[in-house]
Design a protein around this nucleic acid. Structure first.
Length: 485
DNA sequence: TGAAATGTTGGGGCG
DNA sequence: ACGCCCCAACATTTC
């Protein structure tokens, strides 16, 4: 039996890799990665600089690990729909194995490939702790609220398997193969992308380092510290979950193992809950593939989002005049990461204060986040905009100043990313436009020059959003009831 | 995984 | 001593 193990961009590991483990039972194993020219063309790759760096590092690490075990990762350029069937003919492959993906476009791609292949194409679970269709309510329908989802998940959590150890050795590539199609893994410079030292390192070893550091340090204080954006109190494992340099159940079982011996069980369950939000996001996108294009709640279709070029510019450049919102925008560019609290406030600001379509913000985040994952990012944005499942009700509007004062009381997070406010006293760091003249002068801040005035007044924007939403929902609701009648 | 408006209560100043 | 008002502080309701 000759098995082609198709590694894709969300399972770049050898530990707890179900397809690889399944292939080991066969005598011949061919590891393949397909380089789609659509993503790896320099003009396209440069649009995703942060994820490209993490991906290429992870790919190099995967190739090294596979060679260490006696095999070799074959990197083949082309469209996978065309490449995989061709390689199977050329190399007389008996079956193809890979990991299942959640995204609608990926499911369609896999459907096409299954049709084009003349050999079996087996997809294994592993992207999530439980398969996305597993948690359903009493009526067999998917959940649309997180809490009951999490309750049902807890009942099924004993079905989460133990991680599969990495293989100790792999069979070498079959000798009769021609490898003329394989190419080298491109490096960042080939794609015209400068290396960014602020990004997390890719690859499985780096992921294990992150997990170990998190277990030793921040985990036990997670419940109280995770919401403070100035602290390094989160796991930093989101890129590993996105690219699969660590499987979710590796993380899950590491937590359970520590759980037994630690007194900080509240923190552990708060962290586990974050992993469940990820499960929830994937389950939701699985059941509703239209979510990447449409609001979850149909009454938000046709919402009168504004085209506000100046507001958009201010938001992406971090020049809105709201320090927490601006810090988030700048951290995104610099680190390919934004602390969750800042993400929520920034997202809410774009959708509610500026009334700009949340999908534009969602796309912007997908462009620059290292951990940019379709399901999670969409869940977060729809939640923040109020259009999602288990969303904030439309009348809950974050006050960016109060959020800053509550979660960044000393302004440490703001000062790191908005250095022009570095000398502002804590009392006014989140509302520089309310600071007395002498305070501004002492802090070397000239509003409108060194730091912008608020691009929109909070009370005005809040009112405008509430009225807009109320009017729109009244119309769509009456339309809905007319349809029913 | 809100914030603002509105309502209620109770201590203290003061005529 | 008493009633009245003011206004934190807290609770509830509304957006």
């Amino acid at each position: 039996m000759r098995t082609l193990v198709w590694f894709r961009g969300k399972e770049l590991r050898i530990a707890d890799h179900a397809p690889l483990a399944a292939a080991l039972g066969d005598d011949e194993v061919i590891p393949v990665f397909v380089l789609d020219p659509y993503f790896f063309a320099p003009h396209r790759a440069r649009e995703l600089p942060h994820r490209m760096q993490f991906l290429l590092e992870s790919l190099v690490a995967l190739a090294k690990n596979l060679s260490r075990l006696g095999s070799q990762l074959l990197v083949v350029p082309g469209k996978s729909v065309e490449v995989i069937p061709r390689l199977c003919e050329q190399w007389r492959v008996d079956r193809v194995v890979s990991q299942r993906w959640t995204e609608p476009f990926a499911r369609e791609r896999d459907r096409q490939i299954a049709l084009a292949l003349r050999v079996p194409f087996d997809l294994f679970e592993g992207e999530t702790l439980l398969a996305p269709a597993d948690c359903r309510n009493g009526a067999g329908a998917p959940y649309s609220v997180f809490t009951p989802f999490a309750r049902t998940f807890a009942l099924k959590a004993n079905q989460i398997g133990k991680p599969i150890p990495a293989p100790r050795v792999l069979p070498p590539l079959p000798v009769d193969m021609t490898l003329s199609d394989a190419v080298a893994i491109p490096c960042l410079a080939d794609l015209g992308i400068p290396h960014n030292a602020l990004l997390p390192r890719g690859g499985e070893a780096a992921a294990r380092d992150r997990l170990r550091a998190f277990l030793r340090g921040p985990l036990d204080n997670y419940a109280t510290s995770r919401d403070i954006p100035s602290l390094a109190a989160t796991s930093g494992l989101s890129p590993d979950l996105k690219f699969g340099t660590m499987s979710p159940r590796t993380i899950w079982s590491a937590i359970l193992k520590r759980h037994a011996s630690s007194s900080a069980q509240e923190s552990h369950s708060v962290f586990q809950k974050q992993l469940l939000w990820r499960e929830f996001a994937h389950a939701t996108l699985w059941h509703r593939p239209d979510l990447l294009k449409q609001p979850f709640r149909s009454e938000f279709r046709g919402f009168p989002w504004r085209d506000d070029p100046l507001g958009w510019r201010a938001w992406i450049d971090g020049l809105t005049g709201y320090p927490l919102v601006d810090a988030a925008a700048r951290q995104l560019y610099a680190e390919g990461f934004v602390h969750n609290r800042a993400r929520m406030v920034a997202a809410s600001f774009l959708a509610k204060h500026l009334l700009i379509d949340f999908r534009r913000g969602e796309a912007h985040y997908m462009k620059y986040l290292v951990d940019g994952d379709w399901a999670n990012n969409n869940m977060g944005w729809q939640w923040s905009a109020g259009t999602g499942c288990d969303a904030q009700p439309y009348f809950r509007v974050f006050n960016p100043t109060l959020q800053g004062q509550r979660f960044d009381p000393e302004g440490a997070y703001v000062k790191r990313w908005v250095p022009e406010l570095a000398k502002m006293p804590a009392k006014f760091i989140h509302c520089p436009s309310e600071a007395p003249k002498e305070v501004l002068k002492r802090a070397n801040v000239v509003l409108g020059t060194t730091y912008p005035l608020p691009c929109v007044n909070h009370a005005f924007a809040r009112d405008r959003f509430l009225h807009t939403a109320e009017a729109h929902l009244r119309v769509t609701k009456s339309r809905g009831s007319m349809k029913q009648a």
